[in-house]
């Protein structure tokens, strides 16, 4: 009898060890606030028409000569966005001339963060000398369509005919806090692949960032 119990215990412990190895498959589904998934790699992106800090409205279709866009959801208030500010400018500087300019979109409800108001977006764009449009997603519909959950988040799209196809979703690189310690440049690698006519290797990365503030939530 005692041996029997011992065996059961052994089997149980083995189960515990195995399930911890495989990270337990069942998670708290019902408790998770599931973010809308949004676009997936390979999806055709619906064009948007959003107000830029310059006052004009910007759509992807406006610029007929591009090969695609680096769409960056970012904002003023988030420390992670601030940490990437100059790197976003560097991306535009490097790739706009090669056919992949940056479009920055602020997805946040400005009533939640005064810093993210349209006027403050204008102040930042001017003070930093943004060379790319900085758009406000007032209705937040574009941000929802993309499935943006945090800032900064990058979506690289490639133009094929009149369509824009999603090629990369994720972070800019692998070190938010120290630009000098970066070892993997996700967005640069994606664009370089696209420019060379190759598929994007590593087309999805996860990063930590500031949660998007949705209206009425």
């Amino acid at each position: 009898m005692k041996t029997h119990i011992k065996n059961i215990k052994t089997i149980f412990l083995l189960g515990v060890v195995l399930s911890s190895l495989f990270g337990f498959t069942q998670s708290g589904e019902e408790n998770r606030q599931k973010a809308d998934k949004g676009y997936a790699i390979g999806d055709v992106i619906t064009d948007f028409k959003l107000r830029s800090t310059s006052g004009s409205f910007v759509s992807m279709a406006d610029n007929r000569s591009v090969k695609g866009y680096i769409i960056v959801f970012t904002c003023n208030h988030c420390p992670f966005s601030k940490a990437y500010e100059s790197r976003i400018m560097a991306l535009d500087k490097k790739f706009a001339s090669q056919g992949y300019p940056v479009i920055a979109i602020n997805p946040n409800d400005p009533s939640a963060y005064e810093e993210d108001s349209f006027e403050n977006m204008q102040v930042v764009a001017k003070a930093k000398g943004y060379t790319f449009p900085y758009l406000q997603d007032e209705s937040q519909l574009t941000s929802k369509a993309f499935g943006v959950s945090r800032t900064p988040s990058v979506y690289v799209v490639k133009k094929e005919g009149d369509k824009f196809i999603l090629q990369y979703i994720g972070g800019i690189d692998d070190n938010t806090q120290d630009a000098n310690a970066v070892t993997k440049r996700y967005v640069e690698d994606a664009i370089n692949n696209l420019l060379a006519g190759r598929p994007v290797v590593g087309n999805f990365t996860k990063t930590v960032g500031c949660a998007v503030k949705w209206k009425g939530v």
């Binding site: 515990v16 337990f24 972070g171 990063t207 930590v208």
Partner: peptide, 29 residues
């Protein structure tokens, strides 16, 4: 800082947004 290298190891469903909380008890599985 290489968030992409460990976010999935906390939970595959985690997008990376915070706050996030993991509760775990190995013996109770």
């Amino acid at each position: 800082p290489d968030y992409n290298s460990w976010i999935d190891l906390i939970d595959k469903e985690w997008s990376g947004t915070i706050p996030a909380t993991l509760v775990l008890n190995a013996n109770l599985r």
